[in-house]
Write a protein that binds this DNA or RNA. Structure first.
Length: 830
DNA sequence: TCTTAGGGTTCG
């Protein structure tokens, strides 16, 4: 189609422009040059033309329209200084004669106007992308398309124009210089009117705190509707009535107290009061009203301007609202519900079932136990959608909520596991009637939960985004509630259900096999939290710490690759982490010790016996005439074999240290430089026991003279921790520290493995250092988790618990992740 | 320019 067009009329395709701002920074221009192929090749990838006639209220972002400017109206300026102009586009079509070409009203807003009001002329052929579609209020009058196009900063729109060939364009005064050179990217200065200064008849931008709202619902007309009452520090108050054919373009408010920014609302009078209604080009940002919450707005806008001023405004509104007690509603948990109360319930959906045409049953929980006798809505288990394991395990904590009439559609489309707020839910005491008489006077009336029909008091259901602060708070209540509940009957009930002779329902079978499959297919398994849903790494990366997740990912890489480097020394007191001193380091330290020792000690080294040890001295077989001294600690005769005895050694080399440590149970390297026996500097092991080298923390130890050991010589076999205590040594612990790069296809992150890693691998960090068989095992495990030289397909999945946390490096906070409550599957068989 | 709704408790 386009080729024919280009061929006959010899148009050139010149880019126009794209103006979009994300978070205040200008995106680069996207410049397209002359076309000698299809238009699609010139546009961002996968763009598809949509004919006017096929336009819908929620266009997908890869659609573009193409048309000729039939009329262009003068630019109008709002009181806010923002500009807007309207044009009428006629469908470009190749058909020879079109009796009734489609025409559509198109509005250009904001800085886009500055960019193209002079560049576009009647008769120009344009391509528009990322427009917003709304119903045309003037369709009946002007006979044009029932929908209209709106292009603004917020839609991320791009306008392209065809210009005539170079020759023609040279003759034309309009297009004699390349359009892209005339572009100026300016930021739009949005002005926001305090709510007490709002006047009738103007289109304005406002900021405010939500005092009341009705979540979007389908109106009796063509659109979705949402009512939002906002207030601000000026003591103003504004009732906004918002419509849109696409519910997603209405503000995404979760709760009273949220902060909103509306662009382009029109003020009008109704019932002697001013009210706002969304004007063309309306767009909304919604911020969590929680002090200190991230400044990431909920919005459908493709891009938006958000300056330092905006940030200040949101912060101020948050502060003001949180100090103004009348704005917020008290939150009510299930444990606090009073009979006949109406409240907003923030909860997680566990299961749902269609009851009849006018009602849907939702089984929800908020982690607290409702103290009232609850009515259980009878439903066929087979019509109940949800994980049977969860339904059974949480049955004591879930409540049945009946959702009626106009809310049924919304309830029906909810996904199990979703976090919700059910607004204005009614805790109703069941009415006893003649057909269901009370059997005794003591019968306690049951409590039932209803979401009645209608939208009064903001009745409706809001799906909460994962990152909203209410969800984060809710999750913290849910998780401990599950583990408490696990100890009770929950699991037993589940087992009984799965073990009954009755054939399990399909979802039940799926759950049972899924549990098995987890263990089979995953190279690591969880030691707890199996009930938690898996979160994608992309979602993990989107959220702010601290959080805990269950994830499923592959091990793309790990550090250190030299596995012996993964073992470090950790001080449980000062929490410092250090490398294990290398053999070279210990060797040179020992050499320094005996070289300087013999020089400084003078002619009379303390080589004599003491009441608690016997001393032997001999000369080493090297050229330096080095003197080796060994003090044998006296003990019972029964323990006097070398394998059971303790020796204090001076003047030994690394080699001798190894040889002696094989023969004696315990070996303490010492020095007699100071005339009494003392420990060496703690950069070498202070004690070797069963070939295991033990180190002390330099910061936390207060070494005592070795003579302090004398009283111990009477009490039989020596214990490592006792010796350390007597000698004033704070023991360092061997620990594994590794970094796993996890990837699940949706995202990738680095997670540290350093707490309880011995459980993770089933290997002791202290032992692996001296045991080659264990080193081989560790290598085999890592080769299983992350096979060398294989494709991604051969990498096993890892089921892991990870938690996110902030680490401050002085100037900024960084997000770190740590693996916990996870072990290698069947590590004992590796 | 304008249908919807224009906050204010229910059939269950």
């Amino acid at each position: 189609v386009i080729a024919k067009f280009v061929g006959t009329l010899a148009w050139w395709f010149i880019l126009l422009f794209k103006v979009a701002e994300v978070g205040g920074s200008v995106m680069p221009f996207q410049q397209l040059q002359e076309a000698d192929g299809s238009i699609e090749a010139q546009l961002p990838s996968h763009m598809q033309r949509i004919e006017f006639e096929k336009l819908q209220l929620s266009p997908s972002s890869n659609q573009y329209v193409e048309g000729t400017i039939l009329a262009k109206y003068p630019t109008h300026e709002f009181g806010t200084g923002e500009k807007v102009f309207k044009m009428v586009l006629e469908e470009s079509t190749t058909q020879q004669s079109v009796s009734n070409p489609e025409t559509i009203n198109t509005f250009i807003f904001g800085k886009l106007v500055n960019d193209c009001e002079h560049a576009l002329k009647q008769g120009d052929r344009v391509v528009l992308t990322k427009f917003q579609v709304s119903t045309s209020p003037s369709a009946r009058k002007d006979g044009r398309h029932v929908l209209q196009l709106e292009l603004s900063e917020e839609t991320g729109a791009t306008v392209f124009v065809y210009a005539k060939s170079v020759k023609e364009s040279a003759a034309s005064s309009n297009v004699n210089s390349p359009i892209n050179q005339r572009l100026k990217i300016g930021t739009q200065d949005y002005t926001y009117v305090p709510l007490n200064q709002i006047k009738d008849g103007v289109t304005v931008n406002v900021y405010g705190v939500v005092k009341f709202f009705k979540p979007p619902y389908r109106s009796k007309g063509t659109d979705f509707s949402s009512t939002v009452t906002i207030v601000d520090a000026s003591n103003g108050r504004l009732n906004c009535v918002l419509f849109n054919g696409n519910a997603d373009l209405l503000p995404k408010i979760c709760k009273v107290g949220d902060v909103v920014r509306f662009h382009r609302i029109k003020i009008q009078e109704f019932n002697n009061e001013l009210q706002a209604i969304n004007a063309a080009g309306f767009s909304a940002l919604t911020f969590d009203g929680t002090l200190g919450a991230p400044m990431k707005p909920r919005t459908n806008s493709k891009s938006y301007q958000f300056t330092a001023n905006d940030q200040r405004t949101v912060e101020e509104l948050r502060r003001w609202a949180n100090a103004t007690i009348s704005i917020h509603k008290p939150t009510v948990k299930l444990s606090e519900v009073k009979p006949a109360e109406y409240f907003d319930l923030t909860c997680q959906l566990i299961a749902k079932a269609v009851v009849d045409r006018s009602a849907v049953l939702l089984k929800v929980w908020d982690g607290t136990k409702c103290p009232h006798t609850l009515r259980q809505v009878p439903v066929d288990m087979n019509t109940l959608e949800g994980d049977p394991a969860d339904i059974h395990r949480l049955c004591k904590l879930t409540v049945d909520v009946l959702i009626y009439d106009n809310h049924v559609g919304a309830a029906h489309s909810l996904k199990v596991g979703t976090y919700l707020t059910i607004h204005n839910i009614h805790a109703k005491l069941a009415t006893l009637n003649a057909e269901k008489p009370s059997t005794s006077l003591e019968t306690v009336p049951e409590m039932e939960f209803h979401l009645h029909g209608g939208t009064s008091y903001g009745r409706g259901i809001t799906v909460l985004p994962e990152e909203c602060s209410d969800v984060q708070q809710l999750k913290q209540t849910l998780e401990p509630a599950i583990s408490e509940d696990q100890d009770s009957l929950g699991d037993l009930t589940l087992l009984e259900t799965l073990n009954t002779s009755r054939r399990p329902s399909a979802p039940e079978r799926a759950t049972a096999t899924r549990v098995e499959r987890c263990h089979q297919e995953s190279a690591t398994v969880l030691t707890a939290h199996q009930h938690i849903r898996t979160t994608s790494l992309r979602d993990v990366l989107d959220q702010t710490p601290p959080q805990k997740y269950r994830i499923r990912a592959k091990l793309a890489n790990y550090e250190p690759k030299a596995l012996h480097e993964s073992v470090k020394l950790y001080c449980p007191k000062c929490h410092s982490l250090q490398e294990i001193p290398s053999d070279d380091h210990v060797d040179s330290f020992l050499q320094d010790a005996y070289t300087s020792g013999s020089a400084a000690a003078g002619p009379d080294p303390p080589t004599h016996d003491a009441p608690w040890y016997q001393t032997t001295t001999w000369e080493a077989e090297d050229q330096r005439r080095r003197q080796i001294t060994v003090h044998f600690v006296k003990s019972d005769e029964a323990q006097s074999t070398p394998e059971r005895s303790t020796i204090l050694v001076e003047g030994v080399s690394l080699n001798e240290l190894y040889r002696l440590s094989k023969r004696f149970a315990m070996l303490i390297p010492i020095t007699s430089r100071t005339k009494c026996l003392t420990l060496n500097d703690l950069s070498i092991p202070f004690l070797i026991q069963d070939r295991k080298w033990h180190y002390g923390c330099k910061h936390c130890s207060h070494p005592q003279p070795v003579n302090a050991l004398q009283p111990l010589s009477q009490t039989g076999p020596w214990d490592l921790s006792v010796i350390a205590k007597v000698l004033g040594v704070q023991l360092l612990r061997h620990v594994f520290v590794m970094r796993f790069t996890l990837d699940d296809g949706s995202g990738s992150l680095d997670a540290f493995l350093w707490d309880k890693v011995e459980q993770f691998f089933g290997i002791s960090a202290a032992d692996v250092v001296i045991d080659e068989a264990l080193q081989d095992k560790l290598t085999r495990i890592m080769d299983t988790l992350c096979p060398p030289r294989t494709s991604d397909d051969d990498c096993p999945w890892l089921e892991c618990c990870i938690k996110s946390y902030y680490v401050s490096d002085g100037s900024e906070q960084k997000t770190h992740y740590q693996i916990f409550d996870t072990v290698v599957a069947e590590a004992e068989d590796v």
